[in-house]
Structure formats: C-alpha cells, structure tokens
C-alpha cells in the first residue's frame, strides 16, 4: 500500500472561510461605518450648535436693544421710590400736628377773675430716640410728647376757682390737644406774704399733658 503525503501549500493568510461574509471585510467596513456615524453625529450636533448660537445671538441682540428701555424703567422706579419716601416724610410731619389756637383762646373763659396767670408755657416736644449703637441713624420712635403748663396765683379764699379751672381743663376742652391736666404734688403752695400785698395768695401750677404728636 502506497503512502500519500498531504502537503498543505496554502499560507495561513491565504486561507478562505467557507462563510459568505468574511470577517476580514466586515470588520473594517464596520469600523468605517462607525467612523461615518460618528462624523454624522458630529455634523448633527454642529448644525444644532450653530442654530443655538444664532438663537443666542438673537437674544443677545434683543437684550442690547431692550436694555436702554429697561434702564429707563429702573430709573423711573428709583425716582418713584424716592419721591414716595420724600412725600411720606412730609406727610409724617403733617400727621404730627397739634392745634393750640382754639384751646388758648378758650382758656380765659375758664378762668375765674380771682385767678391771675403768671406764666403759660408749652414745653418743647420730647426729643427723638436713637439706637444706642447707631446714634447718627434715623430716630426710632414716631411720637413726641409735650406739656402745657399754666402757672398762676389766686386768692387763698378762692382756691376752689383753681380746682374748677383744673376740672374745666380736664373736661371742658374737647379738642385734640389736652389729654389730662393735674396739679403736681407740692405745686399748690402759699405765697410768701410781702408787706404791700393786700391779702393771702396761693401759687399753683397746672400741668396739662397734651396728646402725643405722632409722626405717621
């Protein structure tokens, strides 16, 4: 029996697969397609980016056009705020008004002829309060109080007239001025008798607390 020697003369690189789709072809094609896909993807993104940039540029241009108008409105708003604050300040002052004329005119009608006033005083309003830590800032309180002080003398025998005057000041003057009136302790006292005085007199002081001035 003769021996058959099989010689494989085909190189490894020349070997062909039995499949109709060769791996040597399909892999490069696949890689090429991926590359193409990536390029298409980039192109799609780039076009989108260009479109977005155009929109952005349009918005920026609109903003540039709109800005002066907006700035004008901001200026108007600031002006409006400032004017409102200025008017409020004047109106706050107006709100603190107390009227004295009617009361002062009416007082002589309440006074008995035996009473003589020596002094009428309206005290300056209480000073505004400030924050201790910021004494130069705006005042913190919105009201100020003031007093109407009546000092006088009356015949000792007619001291009731002083009481009547006090009652009249407390009840008779229905105005926006006097809140309450009182003779402070020790303010009704005997006048030191002088040689030429015709009789005995008492000195008195009536303090009328006025309604507070409200800066509102």
């Amino acid at each position: 029996m003769s021996k058959h020697i099989h010689l494989n003369l085909i190189k490894d690189g020349e070997l062909r697969t039995s499949s109709s789709v060769r791996i040597h072809t399909i892999v490069p094609v696949f890689v090429g397609l991926i590359t193409l896909g990536i390029f298409v993807w980039w192109l799609y993104l780039y076009l989108n980016y260009i479109s977005l940039k155009q929109i952005h540029d349009q918005h920026t241009e609109i903003a540039t056009q709109v800005k002066p108008g907006y700035k004008h409105v901001l200026e108007l708003t600031a002006e409006e705020k400032e004017l409102t604050a200025l008017n409020a300040q004047i109106i706050a002052f107006d709100g603190s008004r107390l009227k004295y004329a009617a009361v002062l005119k009416h007082i002589p009608e309440l006074v008995d002829p035996s009473i003589q006033f020596t002094m009428i005083e309206v005290t300056p309003p209480s000073p505004p309060l400030f924050k201790k830590e910021a004494p130069t800032s705006a005042p913190t309180n919105t009201f100020a109080t003031t007093e109407l002080i009546i000092t006088g003398r009356a015949a000792s025998a007619k001291v009731d007239a002083v009481d009547r005057l006090l009652k009249a000041l407390n009840t008779g003057l229905s105005t926006n001025l006097i809140k309450s009136a009182a003779i402070p302790k020790g303010s009704l006292r005997q006048e030191t008798k002088s040689r030429d005085s015709a009789g005995e007199f008492v000195l008195f002081e009536i303090r009328c607390l006025c309604w507070p001035r409200r800066f509102q």
Partner: peptide, 10 residues
C-alpha cells in the same frame, strides 16, 4: 431735629 418717620430711612 431729625424727622421721625413710620419707616426710618437711612
């Protein structure tokens, strides 16, 4: 005298 106001301004 500083003016008192309902809403103090600086």
């Amino acid at each position: 005298i500083p003016l008192q106001q309902p809403q103090p301004l600086e």
